[in-house]
Design a protein around this nucleic acid. Sequence first.
DNA 1: ATTATTTAATTAGCATAGCTAACTATTATA
DNA 2: TATAATAGTTAGCTATGCTAATTAAATAAT
Lengths: 152, 152
Amino acid sequence: MQAPLERKFLSDEAVEAADRLHSAAIHLLRRLRIRDRELGIGPAQLSALSVLVFGGPKSLAALAAAEQVKAPTMSRIVGGLLQAKLVQRRTDRQDRRAVVIQATKKGIRVLQEGRRRRVAALAAAVQDLPEKDIVQLLDTAQVMEYLSRQVR
Amino acid sequence: MQAPLERKFLSDEAVEAADRLHSAAIHLLRRLRIRDRELGIGPAQLSALSVLVFGGPKSLAALAAAEQVKAPTMSRIVGGLLQAKLVQRRTDRQDRRAVVIQATKKGIRVLQEGRRRRVAALAAAVQDLPEKDIVQLLDTAQVMEYLSRQVR
DNA sequence: ATTATTTAATTAGCATAGCTAACTATTATA
DNA sequence: TATAATAGTTAGCTATGCTAATTAAATAAT
């Protein structure tokens, strides 16, 4: 359990940035979850649906990889989306073990409604920021996606 | 503060920023949760403990407010921390309905160890970024905290 | 002073979402 | 053909969100 002393040296600044980013992400998501709940769809379902709407049909494994969760987790998320008729599922022609999951029209509609609601919440707050902060948010979101793939 | 016309122009950009930030925060936290699990303490418990260690003893209500969750949720989070002996609880002298929650020495030790581990993975990735990106992350984390309090 | 109201915290019960382990069905390989 | 690998699902655990209802204490009203 003892950590090796010869681990990579971390600058105070990097640790500070990482720590603050972690806290900020937790707090932000807790807020946004309130809005998601009004939609009647959880954040994981919403995020997966978003991948399907903007990225097209995907296998369960591909969806799990895109969302960085394990297959059983994604299986249940998709189960919820199926029950709400936000996605449909069919077996793959070439590989009959696999499934192809695709957003329904209702799914597309609900996702866009979700986006609209976030305009009323987060984006409204974002708009009161100075222009440079908004540009920076967009930029940092990309950095965060990059980081989430680098982290081991 | 901003001119109305400028807001209209920013609207699409703000929605875009909100969406990307949402996704990026989800993906980042999913990654970091893996590290948290190694510690045997969940992200909510870790975050609450952090507030206690860096902010000093707090009532349950104050802790819930700081973490932006409802009292019953914080009550259970604290329950877990108590069971692990990471915090201790006493009733307030002035108001005997209230409790005061405080990190134990073990709590302080575990948090610092956890912070090191949890953040180390992220910080190692952060450190490989250009200096300007690190500065930007620090800055954006503050903006995100601000936003999470503005969102209604 | 007594009663009513508000407040702090907890408990109970529900839902979502993460995981691993174990299972079925299919495909690929030896 | 027999075995191994792969795609998904199911079962069962934990952690975290919530609301509603309860208990105890403090405050306000009569």
